[in-house]
Write a protein that binds this DNA or RNA. Structure first.
Lengths: 343, 343
DNA sequence: TTGAAAGCGCTAACAG
DNA sequence: CTGTTAGCGCTTTCAA
């Protein structure tokens, strides 16, 4: 048994393969596979010997080779959230993980802080079978191209080109419900604290939330809009700016709960009383909103519904073995007001 | 050119391979590779034709095959956090993602809510090159076995068997600093709200945090310990139980910031004034702690340091091409008090 | 119970 | 610029 191998003793740091283990244990590759994968047709002595050889050599099977060779491929999806520092996104990630796990899918999570939309999609496309995410690049054709055939489900946006799909949110309906109730409660002069970051690194553009507000809050409310950094600090700072600029405000809608928590804090600092002097409403429905003083009223987004809807789209896509990119599948989830103390 | 292929026309729903695209475009496989991967040596007409054929067929390269064939393998790590619903863990995940991205690694994130330690490690071991995570299974030998040679870096725990490594936290030092300053501020009768969930699904066992408290807080403080659910609600409920059971308390340490925010809220509900009646201190150092009223003092954990340390361990491991599991590498990070208003 | 052969689908190295 | 030839490391037939 004096086989000359191409990778002779001159080559250093070669990967340890199943072949090395087989040779060390004095068995065939197939027997090593049987031992490593706890298969039936093997004598336990042999298994033992193989396992020891494998451990001694520090053998680790190549996940690529085994997935390639085995009929039963594992599925994986990529998830791109906007940030890990906003609980809304991580709670959505939690829901996506739950629905994915139930289907036996792996999830690769990243955030937009780690690269441009196109970079992230392009990298993920080589690693996963479908991509979910918050993508803000206006050019949908470019997004689809970067995905190289891997289906993409976008959140809070409407897909318009083949290969892209979406789970959008109906803010018009949600914000209308919110404003109606605020009016019932006596509010009439509205303000908005808008996020500056949603389209970063592109120039600022009005968000869906702002556009819905502008359409529904009444003409006099268009002057009471401030754009602030998308963070708690930004919310606090934005509130102070808004409060000073717009006397007579009695209700403020804030881009998201994180900023709204900051706004509540900012109002506190200013000695403004909530909800007596001004009502504050966030958007997202974070459970954390219940610990501010007063607790935060909000337009709650059903994260589980969003995750499930996205997963259903992918189910449909994976079953449909058609040729070519699939026409967009577009679904919508409607946020619902959640009344606590701040409004 | 009348090659008979095994997978003939009878087989349905076969995967579309590079070969199919090559045939459709009337070129070789290699040319398809060149077109798909934007390589240089190809005429743009040809590239165009291939790309069209690929799109028409709905071709998607197999990530397993391409990773197997290409010299430049991609690295991936798995990260198991305890929960996506506690910002501490997601902020740690954010840091891990940052350091991983900087090294060109992919990250597969999951949470302990999705399976047992052994299941998660076993699944991840087939998908990634190293595993980071919060694992509570007492039997380290079993953990190492489940990892099948993939190095594991455990958080908040000390590795003791080959193949496992750890980034531990020095709570004794941190809590000592905390108690010393609390005493300086006039506190003398301490209480603790401990988490019940840290060792789930195993029977409850005292956490590192509790053991450090018990060692340092003084004999009379041993009676003032309540075990509560690891959530904001649990923190509120725990505080009320503790407050009723232990008159005369003047400082309460809470297992983590999430529970501490609940405790602050619970105290509020009870009409207990903070910090006048009782000082409350959390552990974690969440920025969210700044929006409670009063804002939360805490023992802050440097999440970036934890993430970096874990990544460094893996760097070391990947370079050291030794045979067999590596002896444990153990590192420690020391939490630091962060004083805000609640204490 | 074990081994030998034949791929999985792709890319690298070379020819042409 | 394009095609041919070898593998990557593993699992699956199928024989022995």
């Amino acid at each position: 048994m004096n086989v000359v191998h191409q990778r002779g003793e001159t080559v250093a740091k070669q990967r340890i393969t199943i072949e090395d283990v087989a040779r060390a244990a004095g068995v065939s590759r197939q027997t090593v596979t049987r031992a490593m994968n706890d298969m039936a047709e093997i004598r336990s002595e042999t298994r033992q010997r193989v396992l020891e050889a494998a451990e001694a050599l520090g053998y680790r099977p190549s996940r690529f080779a085994s997935n390639l060779a085995s009929r039963q491929r594992s599925h994986a999806i990529g998830l791109v959230i906007a940030s890990f520092r906003n609980p809304y996104y991580t709670e959505l990630a939690a829901e996506v993980l739950d629905v994915a796990t139930a289907r036996g899918w792996q999830v690769v999570v990243c955030s937009r802080e780690q690269g441009t939309d196109l970079e992230l999609i392009s990298t993920l496309a080589g690693q996963v079978d479908a991509i979910f995410g918050y993508f803000v690049t206006p050019d949908q054709t470019a997004l689809a191209a970067a995905a190289r055939g891997v289906p993409v489900v976008m959140f809070e946006r409407t897909a318009a080109v083949p290969g892209l799909h979406s789970v959008d949110l109906d803010f018009e309906q949600g914000i209308e419900a919110l404003l109606t109730e605020l009016r019932n409660r006596g509010a009439s002069r509205f303000g908005l604290i808008e996020s500056d970051a949603a389209t970063d690194p592109n120039p600022y553009q009005p968000t869906q939330r702002r556009r819905a507000y502008e359409k529904l809050a009444g003409a006099h409310s268009l002057d009471s809009i401030v754009v602030a950094e998308e963070s708690m600090r930004g919310g606090a700072e934005g509130f102070q700016r808004l409060w000073n600029a717009s006397p007579g405000l009695d209700a403020v809608l804030v881009f998201n709960d994180l900023m709204a928590m900051g706004a509540v804090h900012g109002a506190h600092t200013l000695g403004v009383s909530i909800p007596a002097d001004v009502r504050i409403v966030g958007i997202d429905g974070l459970s954390l909103g219940s610990v501010t003083t007063p607790s935060l009223s909000t337009l709650s987004i059903d994260r589980l519904a969003v995750a499930k809807t996205a997963a259903d789209i992918v189910d449909t896509l994976l079953e449909a073995h058609d040729a070519g990119p699939h026409e967009p599948i577009v679904r919508t989830v409607t946020p619902q007001p959640l009344w606590r103390e701040s409004a």
